[in-house]
Design a protein around this nucleic acid. Structure first.
Lengths: 166, 166
DNA sequence: ACATTAATGTTATATTATAACGTAACACTT
DNA sequence: AAGTGTTACGTTATAATATAACATTAATGT
């Protein structure tokens, strides 16, 4: 099982996350002959600033501040589109929000565990879940092509806080 | 495994689906002391007209035609909200669309298999998938509360058509 | 340098969803 | 039946998310 759930839910050297993500992104760009432009890089950085998914218009605001100029929605959505295509970020459908992908190279199905309290989202790639979903699809004669798997609940930190307060 | 996938993907007496859904809905309303008003009933019917999820504004159009008066968005969303709360319909997050629930009484996790070609959506309640998701959550110390599970691909009919044309 | 492609800027608008406030219908008590 | 509280609906406006269309600029290859 591949996951960043421990990392997400704990204090950690966050600069490293961002730098690692950026390095991976640059490598991927070279590989795919794609361009990592300032806007795209800024969006990627923002999506790694926290382990919480950000909406397009939150990104717009932050981007405008960061680059110190007005940014129109299409600019944001173009960067998002680009990063999605490279697999560097994911879209979380139930939140209309976007988040950096911790393991962009691996072929994986993105299952998210999203905290209802603090908003953090950890990604998990769980082989047996995927196998089971494949099996279930096969049984139904359904040709599986892609999937949206989003679990909502409480992250370890928020759960323990809730318990304390009882 | 509880599913309506065979039904969804085959020709069948559709009037029955609707009537059955309506009967269940009325029972549930009595049980919960909720009111099944004309608007709510119309929305429920529309969501059972096909096994394809409908967006709120598609519902608005069809509702306006059906009731022969102009319908404003809040009216639609209120009916949707009501039906969602009773568990009579589901929201499909990746499509921003709504669909009738085939087994509203059972306590289940709504996994959908959605056809990328014809748009049909079958619901599946699969105990072992739920168990596995619960186990995965436990391992991550994540307190699971709800889930969005949406599989995309080709339904049996559309898949076989694709194969023929090769 | 030039042509080509890729990326961005800009304006407008589509799509999905909700806030806020007023009115009407219903249901319960007396 | 009149009064009262609650629930549902009507109406207007607007918020939030996303994209279309077209002009401009920048980068890349020859």
């Amino acid at each position: 099982m591949l996951t960043n759930s421990r990392l997400v839910h704990q204090a950690h050297d966050h600069g490293r996350c961002i730098n690692a993500a950026l390095t991976r992104a640059l490598d991927l760009c070279v590989e795919r002959k794609a361009r990592m432009t300032p806007t795209r890089e800024a969006v990627l950085r923002l999506l790694w600033q926290s382990h919480q998914p950000l909406g397009a218009y939150q990104l717009q605001d932050q981007l405008a501040t960061l680059l110190d100029k007005t940014i129109a929605p299409p600019t944001v959505y173009r960067a998002i589109e680009f990063l999605l295509q490279l697999g560097l970020i994911h879209r979380i459908a139930s939140l209309n929000a976007y988040i950096g992908c911790p393991f962009p190279n691996s072929d994986h199905s993105n299952l998210f565990m999203i905290c209802n309290n603090c908003g953090s989202a950890a990604e998990v790639a769980h082989a047996s879940i995927n196998e089971l979903l494949q099996t279930a699809s096969d049984k139904a004669n359904f040709t599986l092509q892609s999937q949206t798997l989003e679990l909502f609940g409480l992250c370890p930190q928020c759960a323990s806080i809730e318990n304390e307060s009882k």
